[in-house]
């Protein structure tokens, strides 16, 4: 009787999962197939997932006919790696201080970090541009990297994660004579792997897709990141959807790979069980 019921539940569960999976996968699959179609076939608006006139021209144009593709890829990787690494460190440090340490101004800084999130970026764009110009960082890697090495959203997220950690952790660390920094690096960070993994995914993606600020501060094609470079395939009057689709595939896949890689940290039971 109960067996039967749970089997039914399972069937329903899988049905829902598959249905939702279709909703998420169909647009992506369509974009993937469109990247192998000529423009005319995409625009004709057919619903076919298998290209009628299969072509590699779109990818060919991106990889081979743009001499700077390698440069753009390199720039994107360089910036994303630095931004992700520094964010993981700095955001976790700040989040940890806000969640677990007592200091004058703790609440004020938390409030400021929240407040920063609430002001829309459209209004800080021009002032930040002027600051970068003042620093002489227009058209440079540091101009792309430094302003984004901390991120209020993920400081906030890390704080919310650290707040749940059991107090016994630090008490034990203190008894062992560890300093704050040692506690943070040796005990707290290893336990925060799932949160760090989530952070890594999103910061990498954010940096990878970052468009508007690089668009404004970079004028040198050599320094372009992938989204800027691939944007040169767009026309002013006409949207070349075939190139846009292929370009978007080219830069979706690395982000997806990073996600798949960090996904392995989302497995229950890795964490606190050891410390008990």
């Amino acid at each position: 009787m109960t067996m039967n019921r749970s089997r039914w539940l399972k069937v329903i569960l899988y049905a829902i999962l598959v249905l939702y999976g279709m909703i998420t996968v169909v647009p992506f699959a369509w974009a993937l197939s469109a990247s192998f179609k000529p423009l005319s076939e995409i625009i004709a608006g057919g619903v076919n997932f298998i290209p009628e006139h299969f072509t590699l021209d779109n990818y060919n144009k991106i990889f081979i006919q743009s001499p700077l593709f390698g440069r753009w890829l390199f720039n994107s990787v360089l910036v994303a790696v630095w931004v992700t690494g520094l964010n993981l460190l700095f955001n976790s440090m700040a989040g940890y201080a806000l969640a677990r340490m007592r200091f004058p101004g703790n609440r004020l800084w938390f409030f400021i970090i929240l407040a920063v999130l609430m002001v829309p970026g459209q209004i800080t764009l021009i002032p930040s541009y002027l600051i970068l110009k003042y620093l002489g960082w227009l058209n440079s890697y540091q101009g792309l990297i430094v302003p984004t090495v901390v991120n209020a959203t993920f400081i906030f997220m890390m704080r919310q994660f650290f707040i749940n950690f059991p107090n016994e952790l630090e008490e034990a660390a203190q008894l062992d004579g560890l300093s704050r920094w040692e506690t943070f690096v040796q005990i707290v960070l290893p336990l925060a792997k799932p949160a760090l993994a989530a952070q890594a995914i999103f910061i990498f993606m954010g940096s990878w897709n970052n468009f508007l600020m690089p668009l404004i501060i970079l004028s040198d094609q050599d320094l372009f990141t992938l989204p800027l470079g691939l944007n040169t395939f767009k026309g002013q009057y006409i949207s070349y959807w075939n190139y846009i689709m292929a370009a978007s595939m080219v830069f979706t896949l690395p982000a997806l790979a990073i996600y798949a890689f960090f996904n392995r940290y989302f497995i229950q039971g890795v964490t606190f069980t050891g410390s008990k």
């Binding site: 700095f90 440090m93 340490m101 703790n106 920063v116 800080t124 090495v149 901390v150 400081i155």
Partner: peptide, 24 residues
């Protein structure tokens, strides 16, 4: 503890101060 805290916060305060708080 306060000094340690501000050392933990330093990168955030410096970068955010220059690129977000000044513009705001």
């Amino acid at each position: 503890e306060a000094v340690a805290s501000y050392l933990f916060m330093a990168p955030t305060i410096i970068v955010m101060g220059i690129f977000l708080i000044i513009p705001i």
